[in-house]
Simulated scan of single mutants.
Amino acid sequence: MSALIEAEDLVRVYATRQGLFGRAVPVRAVDGVSLRVARGETLGIVGESGSGKSTLGRMLLGVDPAQGGVVRFDGAPLPDKGTPAWRALRARLQMVYQDPLAALDRRLPIARQIREPLDIHARGDDAARRARVAELMQSVGLRADQAGRYPHELSGGQRQRVVIARALACAPELLVCDEPVSALDVSIQAQVVNLLRGLRGENGLAMVFISHDLKVVRNLCDRVAVMYLGRIVEEGPVERLFAAPRHPYTRALISSVPDPGQPLKGRIILQGEPPNPAKRPPGCAFYPRCPQASGICRAELPQMRATGQGCRAACHHLDGADPVPQAA
């Protein structure tokens, strides 16, 4: 299946200041990431907070320009941010944000905000735009009488539906969802996930779904990429990766998913915290917390290797690590 969007060796470095008068220190938020998403496919990106997931999502849209590597959409490099070509392409690339209240203008009724992309990209006449807004509201489960309401008059789940409707206004081909259900309670999370699944089936959407909730990722995604400190450490079809994770970090993540029957069965407790991104250890960044770490892990950065059946991982000890299925 041909790739709709493809990233190759993406790098994004931020400068952070240590202390009030300290010098600027470079932090590699995304460090050599390569991935691809096929048309109609959903790729989940998971990892701890600070692993670079959200930065990577913005880079795929060109909102955060890459300082190294390239993003190709539909076979062509992504235009530079702010150019007319980039603005025109944004009709085909949209984002759903984590905090819907922050993503919406509190001074405008929701119908006007859903219509805004149609006005920006000059899609149809006034009647067609009004009809499209009504269609979008219905498709995401909002009532017609809610069109004149303001964001603060809606629940969190309803606001997220407004954000999704606005993102779908111009019928995009790719939707990047950055933690779209993390701020919602469990019942509303399920509604939004089911909504996204249904919209994907109806519209043939490709999605990049960024989340720390592995159960949601397993329920929604076709493939999953695991990030740790700016790099992808394992990737593969979701059921195969959950059944037999090969990287020690992936094993620990999957073991943390609660099992109602036996909550502590197979739980792997990682020691310590992720390293300071401004002071990355040499070699594998995971080695200070890895139970399999050896001398080569401290000295040499592992490269991604095929592990069979569409899976790949970056670990020096793949040949000696037996894939043990984990409960999820």
Rank of each mutant, 00 (worst) to 15 (best):
V257T: 03
L301E: 13
R280P: 11
P274R: 00
A278Y: 01
R298H: 11
I268A: 03
Q271K: 12
H316C: 04
R267S: 08
Q271V: 04
G272Y: 01
R305W: 08
Q262C: 08
N276L: 13
Q262R: 14
K279C: 11
Q303H: 05
D319T: 14
G272P: 07
A278H: 03
F242R: 01
R267F: 08
P281M: 00
I296V: 14
I296P: 05
I269E: 15
T307H: 07
L264N: 15
I254S: 02
Q262K: 13
D322Q: 15
H316A: 05
C311I: 06
K279Y: 10
F242Y: 09
I269P: 14
S255Q: 06
P263V: 00
G320N: 13
I268R: 11
K279G: 04
P274I: 02
G295L: 13
A244M: 05
A314H: 09
A278L: 07
P288N: 04
Q303M: 10
P288K: 05
A313K: 10
E300A: 14
L253V: 04
I268N: 05
E273W: 11
R240T: 12
G320H: 15
S255H: 12
M304K: 10
L241W: 00
A252T: 01
H247W: 03
C315V: 06
A285C: 06
G283C: 05
A321M: 14
I268V: 12
R312C: 05
H316R: 03
R246N: 04
A306G: 13
L253M: 02
G320E: 15
I254A: 08
P274L: 08
S256G: 10
C297M: 06
A244R: 14
H316F: 03
R312W: 04
R305S: 11
S294Q: 15
P282Q: 09
A293N: 08
P291W: 04
P245H: 01
D322Y: 12
